[in-house]
Every structure is written in structure tokens, then in C-alpha cells.
Design a protein around this nucleic acid. Structure first.
Lengths: 147, 147
DNA sequence: CGGTATCCTTGGTGATACTG
DNA sequence: CAGTATCACCAAGGATACCG
């Protein structure tokens, strides 16, 4: 047992931390924002005005999303009170999705993220190129040194 | 071939969209924010003041992060010019990480996200409970109807 | 101390097929 | 139209072992 203490303690720490992260509102929101489709969906819903969009409209507005992912994203957003789902029991059935006030708040936040991204992407891009260039230069130096 | 058109077009749309997303600064930043460890790392670095932290300090400050993930996160952050890496060639070697001005900008953004999360988590949590309750009630209704 | 290289597991993602 | 269910895949993440 004593030989496993280090690994066991690490595992325990991980579990405890994971539990903490699950309860941490910030982590939750960050995971949400980072989700591949969430940003697109609330963006599209935001652009559509408060009128809402039908399921198939959403699918068309976001090329490349599968039904599964669209439904899954919509469901989780609905569960968190960020989008509202309105079923009109006509034939064929019609379902509209719209941002709730809370969802609009998230949309505003996302817009702020977008602004920052647009404003600083140039710097980030430049930093990447500089980093990659330096890295290539180091490798080149190493190679020429060896040769 | 005509029978594959629908699938082919979908695949093509996916590829084009994926390419677009890769070039989209907003998507890039969202992916970054959503990364499990990025938020923690810049948060810790931010709290530490501008003095920076050593690699092992970071590891200790974030229980549950593996060396691999810590290094990987730090590298990608460094590549994007968000953190600086300073090597002091003493024995044993010492490496310090700190937020760059750009990284502090990201930190501010993250703080805004955190504020929103803290301010609205109550609503989200309530929405979840309401959703889950409704869902359970529907199932219950279905069952009682069947029975 | 501060990493890198490797293997292995897990689950997120997407394609497909079927239903009310 | 608006989903649900199932399967298959691959890549992110973690554990482990080793190097400068």
C-alpha cells in the first residue's frame, strides 16, 4: 500500500479537484463557451432577432452540424434556461427556438469575446509566426551544428 | 453518383465550414477559453502578480493537472504570446512563467466571464432544476398513464 | 527541476437508420 | 419536420517511464 501512496494521493487530488471544477460556475460557463456549436447557435439565434428560428433553419444556418449535435446543443442550452423551445402542434409539427433574456446575456458576453478576438488576433497571429520562426531557426541551428 | 450527392454535398459543406472555423479568430479564442486548463493557468498566473511562477509552482497550484497537460497548455499559451517563459540556467534549472500584456488582456476577459458566471449561476441552476423536474414529471405522467 | 516520449483508455463526434 | 437510437471512429487526456 505504501508504494502506491504517491499515485493514490495524486488520484485523490484529481478527484477532489474535478469535483470542485464541476461545482465551479466559471468552469461550467467556460466549458459551455468553448463548446464547438454553442457559440454558433447563440450567434445565429442572436442575429435572427427575438423572433426565434425553427430547428431546420438552425441546421441550415450552421452547415456542417449534425442533427445529433444540434439537438444535443439545443437541449443543453434549453436546460440551462438559455434558449426557449416552443412547439406548435400543427402538421407537420413546428418547433421554434429563441434566446431567453438569460441567453441574450450570454450572447452579449460572447460578443465581448468576439470583440477581443477581432481586436487582438493580429497580435496573436504575429506571436505565433515569431514563435514558429524561432523554433525552426533553433532546429536549423542544431542541424547545421550536427552537420 | 447522383445517389451520393446529398451526402457528398454535406461532407463538402462540413469541410468548407471547418476551414472557415479554423480561420475564425472568435472560434479560436473560444476554443482556448473552453480549454480545461487554460482558464486555471491564466487565473493562477494572474493571482500571482506580475512576478511569474515556476513550473512546479504552477503544478502545485493546480492539483490534478498532469505534467503533459501543464506543459502543453503553457506551450500553446507561449506560442500565442499570452505567457512568457523565462529560463534561468542555474543548477537545477529554473523556469518562470508570467502573463504578457496580451495575456493580461485575456485574463481581464476571463474575469468578465467569471463575473457573469457568478452573477447568473443561480438562474442557470434554477433553470436546470426546473427542467429536470418537468422532465421527471413527464415521465411520471407517462408511467401513471400506462399503469 | 523541468521537461519529453510512449502507450492506453475514454468519451465526444459524426454517419446512418428509424420513428411519431 | 423534428427528432431518437445505435454504431464506429478518432483524438484528447492521463499514466508511466525516461532524459538533460
Amino acid at each position: 500500500m505504501a508504494t502506491m501512496t504517491a499515485a493514490a494521493r495524486r488520484a485523490e487530488a484529481r478527484s477532489a479537484y474535478d469535483a470542485f471544477l464541476r461545482d465551479c460556475p466559471t468552469s461550467l460557463l467556460m466549458a459551455r463557451i468553448g463548446d464547438k456549436w454553442v457559440g454558433l447557435v447563440v450567434g445565429v439565434l442572436r442575429d435572427s432577432g427575438g423572433t426565434g428560428l425553427r430547428y431546420s433553419d438552425l441546421g441550415r444556418a450552421i452547415p456542417g452540424v449534425s442533427q445529433k449535435m444540434l439537438t444535443q446543443t439545443l437541449r443543453s442550452l434549453e436546460r440551462d434556461g438559455l434558449v426557449s423551445r416552443t412547439v406548435t402542434p400543427s402538421v407537420p409539427a413546428r418547433v421554434d427556438y429563441a434566446l431567453t433574456p438569460l441567453g441574450e446575456g450570454l450572447g452579449d458576453l460572447l460578443a465581448a469575446v468576439k470583440d477581443w478576438a477581432d481586436g487582438h488576433f493580429g497580435e496573436i497571429h504575429a506571436a505565433r509566426e515569431a514563435y514558429d520562426r524561432d523554433r525552426a531557426a533553433e532546429e536549423g541551428t542544431a542541424v547545421s551544428g550536427a552537420a
